[in-house]
Design a protein around this nucleic acid. Structure first.
Length: 111
DNA sequence: AAACTGACTAATA
DNA sequence: CTATTAGCCAGTT
């Protein structure tokens, strides 16, 4: 199978990313760049997105709390997951303004 | 092994 | 506001 999130090694880049994402509390969001930085991987925002893309649906990682630097849900190759993500975030109390933007100054998680 | 791909970001023009 | 350039790197083909 093509699933790669299943056989990730402890201490690997992906593992660090998932660990950081897993610490984001409900009702808060983090940007890809912040996740990378907190994971000790500054400048690797793209890898964060790729790691989440590789994640399995049933994973316990709150992937929906990761948005881009503009405070918007990043578009995927196929539409659908993005709407699900927004729906989940609104369910946690996140407010989307005009243009589908989130007020990062208010919802960005600061550990 | 080499090329291709992609949930990003910041800087510049 | 849009467009371009550059930096980043693991997984897939």
């Amino acid at each position: 199978m093509t699933g790669l999130a299943g056989n990730r090694a402890p201490g690997s880049t992906y593992d660090r990313i998932y660990a950081v994402v897993g610490r984001v509390p409900p009702g808060r969001v983090l940007t890809y760049g912040e996740v990378a930085r907190l994971a000790g991987l500054p400048g690797r925002a793209r890898q964060v997105g790729y790691a989440l893309y590789a994640l399995e649906d049933a994973a316990k990682v709150p992937w929906q709390r990761i948005v881009n630097a503009e405070g918007r849900v990043s578009a995927r190759r196929e539409a659908g997951p993005a709407e699900l993500q927004r729906n989940l975030l609104e369910g946690e109390g996140i407010v989307f303004g005009a243009g589908g933007r989130i007020d990062l100054q208010r919802f960005l998680w600061r550990p």
